[in-house]
Write a protein that binds this DNA or RNA. Structure first.
Length: 277
DNA sequence: GCCCAGGGAATCG
DNA sequence: CGATTCCATGGG
């Protein structure tokens, strides 16, 4: 991976092993918006940036070399060698087919509070509406970045009442959001401690939050806490398992079954011809 | 009107 | 443990 400053202030990251559009639009993050030129704008880790993937590589706008090294390198999980990981999980036919179609889907290392809150909102919901609710939440309660709105701090939401969030039209999820905010703000839930716990302990810790069951906990662990060997089961994955893995999952998915899960998830939603977008 | 959406809590047995 | 039922909301 090479980082080069361009004359217009943009930064080129070449030789990056990633399919950016699929990675940002496969349902693990909800705040990246695809613009008409094919680039993605979004706010994460307190920064609002734009990224365009071309044949030359990734072109970052609105950021600098230091932030690419200190923030975005980790956000896109570039420390892990996906070529090697994918080589192993591609012994599976479904994963192999999905990889041939979609290239390298990377697991993002997102902010844990934002992630658990986002997946609480995701319960029994569809992706466009999840994005809309999160957008409304950020517009009203998020802190300003240079070019957008950050996800609200837990402390900001912790002092609100359900009525304050009724404009979200998030229904029964509103008290769950508040419970997550209160427990996060008070550090009753400490994500930095959870990060270094064994898998089962981390999961049960997250499930102390109301509205966080097995699936939301697993998504939070996979997409923000570095647990690459969890397999979140939602309605799509359940269907895929019944269809393609009735005898159980291959052992060689370990210890990266979370990455395999993203390929199976994407394949089930988009890929096998009889599914809608 | 019905069904579905990256589920979870409460309440059974 | 597993199976049911209810929980708001909006799009197709």
């Amino acid at each position: 991976m090479d980082i080069t400053s361009l004359s217009d202030g943009k930064i080129l990251v070449s030789n990056a092993d990633i399919n950016l559009p699929v990675t940002l639009d496969c349902g693990q993050a909800f705040r990246w918006e695809k613009l008409t030129d094919g680039s993605f704008s979004g706010t994460a880790m307190g920064k609002t940036i734009n990224i365009l993937q071309t044949t030359e590589g990734l072109i970052f706008s609105g950021t600098n070399k230091d932030d690419i090294t200190n923030i975005w390198f980790n956000y896109f999980d570039f420390a892990n060698d996906y070529k090697q990981i994918i080589k192993n999980i591609c012994e599976d036919k479904i994963v192999k087919t999905a990889y041939e179609h979609y290239g390298t889907i990377r697991i993002l290392n997102q902010d844990p509070w934002e992630t658990v809150c986002s997946f609480i909102i995701s319960a029994c919901n569809n992706i466009p509406r999840i994005k809309g609710i999160i957008r409304k939440l950020c517009d009203k309660y998020g802190n300003d970045t240079e070019n957008g709105k950050n996800f609200p701090d837990a402390k900001t939401l912790a002092v609100l009442s359900p009525d304050d969030l009724s404009y979200l039209h998030a229904g029964y999820r509103v008290p769950y959001i508040l419970d997550a905010a209160i427990k996060t703000a008070s550090e009753e839930i400490d994500f930095n401690k959870i990060r270094s716990m064994p898998e089962k302990e981390a999961r049960s810790e997250l499930m102390k939050i109301k509205g966080v069951g097995r699936k939301v906990a697993d998504c939070t662990m996979l997409f923000s806490l570095g647990f690459k060997d969890v397999w979140p089961v939602d309605v799509h994955i359940k269907r895929a398992q019944e269809k393609y893995y009735p005898e159980g999952l291959p052992q060689f998915f370990h210890p990266y079954s979370g990455i395999a899960q993203q390929y199976v998830f994407h394949f089930q939603r988009m890929g096998d011809g009889e599914n809608k977008q």
